[in-house]
Design a protein around this nucleic acid. Sequence first.
DNA 1: AACGATTATATCGCACGCGATTTATTTTGG
DNA 2: CCAAAATAAATCGCGTGCGATATAATCGTT
Lengths: 155, 155
Amino acid sequence: MAKEKQATSSDVLRLENQLCFRLYAASKEVVRRYRPHLEPLGLTYTQYITMMALWEEESLSMKELGARLDLESSTLTPLVKKLETAGLVTRQRSTEDERSTVVGLTQAGRDLHDKALSVPACMADDLAIDTSLGLQLIDDLDELLQQLRTDNQDR
Amino acid sequence: MAKEKQATSSDVLRLENQLCFRLYAASKEVVRRYRPHLEPLGLTYTQYITMMALWEEESLSMKELGARLDLESSTLTPLVKKLETAGLVTRQRSTEDERSTVVGLTQAGRDLHDKALSVPACMADDLAIDTSLGLQLIDDLDELLQQLRTDNQDR
DNA sequence: AACGATTATATCGCACGCGATTTATTTTGG
DNA sequence: CCAAAATAAATCGCGTGCGATATAATCGTT
């Protein structure tokens, strides 16, 4: 392997693998760290981001939820049903388009918002990520996601 | 900590502000993009990175594999058993420490390496990530992972 | 040597996550 | 106006992913 600065073709090929694996590892690690903070709320990470979307909008269709969370209906349907069973959300067919299912918050779901307010601060403490690194990663991940989604269209 | 722009409590909860969500979304998207390239090999992404580790080392214990891939034995055991069923790897108890299970490559597993060589190039084409963005993300994710793992120790 | 602690895997239960398919509803083109 | 295409959810099957626990082997201490 070349030791100097020069990038060989195998370096370039390896880049994709390395980037993917690091994303995969970092994502799993951060979600793992969420678990203890979310457990008192009775939520998993995916349920938590679903509730976050609803705390912002109060009510969203399954399609809108899927677009925001980047999840398929096959993932979302059972997940939202669990939240419904837990008494946090309601599910009902839209009156204007009966193909659409609208998910809304119950009072218990709204109430959970207050308890959830402490989660980001706890996570910030727990992760103890350097702030400038965090901000830079957010920017770069946004750019990555945008690049991934724009060239999604020619597939 | 204090910025000129004060963050409100609801800003803190906002989906778009969360590093974690971006990692989660980016990781899923990249793994999704791998799928069509790995399907001809009969591998999932997790199976692929497992085989990559073995193509590098020829033989690894379950513990070593878990450390490399950042996976628990509860994930790894069934996964490696599937690779064994597919005829790609062997599993046997270590003779020197019978607690340890050693995973090795079969000839079919070694042969698969050649077919897999084209995958990173296909992914590089497919993702079409800006090189400097990719390199920067790798560096930043490395730093993130290191920070996560060092303060893991006081938990 | 003995036995409690540690270590390496394996097992179990639960929750994603998605492609493929199905069902119900709306939209559209002739 | 109506059948075909498109759309929105739901369902199914399979493969992770992990915490909790179980099991077996080794280590450490006396």
